[in-house]
Amino acid sequence: MKAKDIAYSALFAALTAVGAQISIPIGEVPATLQVLFVLLSGLILGARLGFLSQLIYLLMGAIGLPVFAGFKGGFVYLYGPTGGYLIAFPIAAFLVGLISERYENLKGYILGSLIGIGVIYLLGWLRLGFYFGGNFGKAFAVGVAPFVVIDLIKAGIAVVVADRVKKSGVI
């Protein structure tokens, strides 16, 4: 690993941890910006570093640092019912990065973000389903349906932000 790789993936891992603590009050359930930063790290850093930054983020959480939403941390959260969503973060960032690297335009960013959200929900839903002893219908109703629209809007925000950051020429 080069110095640049370390610095960029460390900063984006830290950003994801910060995003998990910033919550926007929407109705009853506050929405965090965690997923938004997962997509942004793929969009801005690309596949390899996006994956690495999210891996570091999960490692921080796994060893007990309170970096997950609501200042939570610990290996249990990776294993627990909502662990699927977390485990999907590095994979999602990798895929988003891969697609947006191939098509360097808005369409590529949008397609990548949609696939990223898809992977997060797919793994999250599967884990929750297995946790419920194979009751995937219930897992869908509890863990996917209520949140998917909010996260699709977040994906839109991620695309807009990534596009402007890239156009600003800092990276």
Binding site: A7, Y8, L11, I44, I157, V170
Partner: peptide, 20 residues
């Protein structure tokens, strides 16, 4: 959140650059 996110990310990228 867009006007908050853009400066936050640009500042982070600049910090990462200096750090490297």
């Amino acid at each position: 959140t867009v006007p908050v996110l853009i400066p936050l990310i640009i500042a982070s990228i600049k910090t990462a650059h200096e750090l490297s």
